[in-house]
C-alpha cells in the first residue's frame, strides 16, 4: 500500500516536471517565432537605412545586410536637395513642402465635414438618412480609376488642373466618406437622450454640436486626422494624375527619382529619399500608434 502511494507521488512530481519543461519549451518556441516575424518586418527598414548610409562603392562590393563601414550622410543631403526628378535636380525638398501644403488643408476640411456629417447621421436622423449614409460610404470603396478621367476634365474646367488646390479638392471629396464613417460611428454610441436633454434645455442644432459633441470628440478627431493624413501623404494615384512638374506630391517625386534613367543608379540616394518620404507618417505612427490602429480597424469593422 505505502509503496504504491510513494510511487504515485514521485511519478506525480515527474509528470509535473515534464509539464513544466514542455511549457518552457513551448514559450521559447513562441518567442522565437515572434522574433523571426519581427526580423522579417524590420528587414526592409534596416536595409533602407543601412543602404542610405553606405557609399555606392560599398553597396556594389558589400553585402545587402551588412552594416555600413563609414556612416555617410551625403546621400541624404542629395536626396533632400540635389537628386533629379526628371529634368529638375532640387531633390525631394520642394515636393515635401507640396505634400505638406496639400495635406494640411485637405485633412482639416475633410475632418470638419466628416464631423458635422457624422453628427447629423448619428444624432439627427431623418427619413432616408441611412440611405444617404450608405451612398456616402460606398464612395470610400470605389476604385478611383473610375473617377480619374472625368475628374481631370472637371479640374480643367475649374482652372484647378495641375494645382495644389485641385488636389486638395480631390482629397477632400474622396475623404469625406471615411471621415463621416468615423464620426458617425463614434457619435452613434452617444445616447440620444443627450440631444433630447439639450433640446429641452433650449439648445439648437449647432449649439448642441459645439457645446456638447465637439468637446467629447478629441479621440475621434485624432483618429480621423491621422487616418486622413496618412492617406493623403501616401497617395500616389491622384498625385500622379492631377499634378504637374511644380506641384507634385512627394510620393510622385520619389517614384521619379527612383525610376529616373539618367546617370548612375544611386541606390543610397533612392533609399534616403524613400525614408524621407516615409518619415512623416512613420513618426505619426510611432507617436500615436494607438490612434492609427483604431482608425485602421474602424475603417473596416463597423462600430
Amino acid at each position: 500500500m505505502t509503496d504504491i502511494s510513494v510511487n504515485s507521488v514521485s511519478s506525480e512530481k515527474n509528470a509535473a516536471r515534464i509539464r513544466l519543461a514542455q511549457r518552457i519549451a513551448l514559450r521559447f518556441g513562441l518567442y522565437a517565432m515572434l522574433l523571426v516575424f519581427a526580423l522579417y518586418y524590420l528587414m526592409p527598414l534596416f536595409v533602407m537605412l543601412t543602404t542610405s548610409l553606405k557609399s555606392l562603392d560599398e553597396i556594389r562590393t558589400g553585402s545587402l545586410l551588412s552594416l555600413p563601414r563609414d556612416i555617410d550622410f551625403t546621400s541624404w543631403a542629395t536626396a533632400w536637395s540635389g537628386a533629379c526628378t526628371g529634368i529638375q535636380c532640387d531633390g525631394l525638398q520642394p515636393f515635401f513642402w507640396n505634400s505638406v501644403l496639400l495635406s494640411v488643408p485637405a485633412v482639416f476640411l475633410s475632418t470638419l465635414l466628416g464631423a458635422v456629417n457624422g453628427y447629423v447621421l448619428a444624432q439627427w436622423r431623418f427619413k432616408g438618412s441611412n440611405i444617404l449614409f450608405a451612398l456616402m460610404l460606398f464612395g470610400c470603396f470605389i476604385p478611383f480609376q473610375v473617377v480619374i478621367l472625368p475628374m481631370a476634365i472637371v479640374l480643367g474646367k475649374l482652372q484647378l488642373a495641375g494645382t495644389i488646390g485641385g488636389l486638395v479638392l480631390v482629397h477632400v471629396v474622396y475623404g469625406i466618406g471615411f471621415t463621416t464613417l468615423f464620426f458617425r460611428n463614434f457619435y452613434v454610441t452617444v445616447p440620444q437622450e443627450l440631444v433630447k436633454a439639450a433640446k429641452v434645455d433650449g439648445a439648437g442644432f449647432f449649439r448642441i454640436f459645439y457645446s456638447i459633441f465637439l468637446p467629447i470628440s478629441p479621440p475621434i478627431i485624432v483618429v480621423t486626422v491621422i487616418w486622413q493624413f496618412t492617406q493623403i501623404w501616401n497617395d500616389f494615384l491622384f498625385g500622379v494624375s492631377f499634378s504637374q512638374a511644380g506641384t507634385q506630391p512627394i510620393t510622385v517625386a520619389l517614384n521619379n527619382i527612383v525610376n529616373s534613367t539618367t546617370g548612375v543608379k544611386e541606390y543610397n540616394v533612392d533609399m534616403a529619399a524613400a525614408i524621407i518620404a516615409a518619415l512623416p507618417t512613420l513618426i505619426v505612427y510611432v507617436v500615436a500608434g494607438k490612434y492609427f490602429i483604431r482608425g485602421l480597424t474602424a475603417g473596416s469593422v463597423k462600430g
Binding site: 445616447p191 437622450e193 443627450l194 436633454a197 429641452v200 434645455d201 439648445a203 449649439r207 456638447i212 468637446p215
Partner: peptide, 25 residues
C-alpha cells in the same frame, strides 16, 4: 423639464455647468 433614464448629463461639463447649461443657453 425632463429627467432621463440615462441621466443624459453632458459628459464634458462639470455638475455646475450641467445644471446651468439651460439658463446659459
Amino acid at each position: 423639464a425632463m429627467v432621463f433614464q440615462s441621466y443624459a448629463l453632458y459628459p464634458t461639463m462639470t455638475v455646475g455647468k450641467n445644471i446651468t447649461f439651460g439658463m446659459k443657453v
